[in-house]
């Protein structure tokens, strides 16, 4: 019996959404980060980018009609907000690589203490290499947030001293949101714990983390 509960994916999404400022241009990676779109505060104008050239994306109208030419990176049907624009790939990736996006939120297999990100390939001999736009986002967004479970399905830590999976980008991650904590990655080797779920202690979190954590007095408590 533990004294703490893990956050649900929706709760993590809500925490990330809360930290995205009004007027930000944001790319949400495939998988868990796409959930964030549903939790963006209604009083903020946050403009969502999709690598296939859409700036100003929203959910597809419920019940349709679905437009086959309005899709996101995960090939799901989407909608456009008033003020949206569409461009071609060179310009779309200039937005990503050229530091024009304020925030990207990506899923991850592993993040290292220096901010190395591994999220595109498990490195298994039978896996087909497929990177998509992940390396461009990691290299170029102003801020790279990672949203993931704190440990993998087997209970192994995903925050590590050095990634064992193939890297997506070296020293690119700025902050990690997990189902247990929010951790800043300043790039100097420290992992600064900004927030933890209620009932969890720093030593408790450290046991599930394979790189040394730094605590702060102002560490917030998150109700799960």
């Amino acid at each position: 019996m533990t004294a703490w509960n893990k956050l649900t994916r929706a709760q993590i999404a809500e925490l990330v959404a809360r930290d995205i400022p009004d007027g930000a241009y944001v790319n949400l990676g495939i998988g868990m980060p796409t959930l964030i779109a549903q939790h963006l505060p209604a009083d903020r104008e946050i403009i969502l980018h999709s690598e296939n050239g859409i700036l100003g994306m929203t959910n597809a109208p419920e019940g349709g009609p679905h437009d086959p030419d309005i899709i996101n990176a995960g090939k799901e049907f989407m909608g456009l907000v008033p003020g949206a624009s569409i461009t071609e790939h060179v310009t779309s990736f200039a937005m990503m690589r050229g530091g024009h996006l304020d925030v990207t939120v990506l899923g991850a297999f592993q993040v290292s203490r220096l901010g190395d990100l591994a999220n595109w390939d498990t490195g298994e001999p039978n896996s087909i290499p497929a990177v998509g736009g992940a390396m461009d986002l990691a290299a170029g967004a102003k801020q790279v947030f990672v949203m993931m479970e704190h440990v993998d399905r087997k209970g192994a830590p995903k925050i590590v001293t050095e990634c064992t999976y193939p890297l997506t980008g070296a020293r690119v991650v700025d902050r990690i949101y997990t189902d247990l904590a929010i951790i800043d990655v300043p790039g100097d080797g420290r992992l600064i714990v900004r927030a933890m779920v209620e009932g969890l202690t720093l030593p408790g979190l450290q046991k599930m983390t394979a790189a040394p954590l730094t605590g702060v007095d102002a560490c917030q408590r998150i109700a799960a």
């Binding site: 779309s92 990736f93 690589r97 998509g132 992940a134 390396m135 461009d136 193939p166 890297l167 997506t168």
Partner: peptide, 28 residues
């Protein structure tokens, strides 16, 4: 990487030579 692919084609079409990109630096 998708953006590298787009810009490699752009370089070919725009009469440019090879170019340096930060994408994929430090990766396999």
């Amino acid at each position: 990487p998708q953006g590298t692919m787009a810009d490699r084609m752009h370089a070919a079409g725009a009469g440019l030579g090879p170019f340096f990109t930060p994408t994929s630096y430090g990766t396999p």
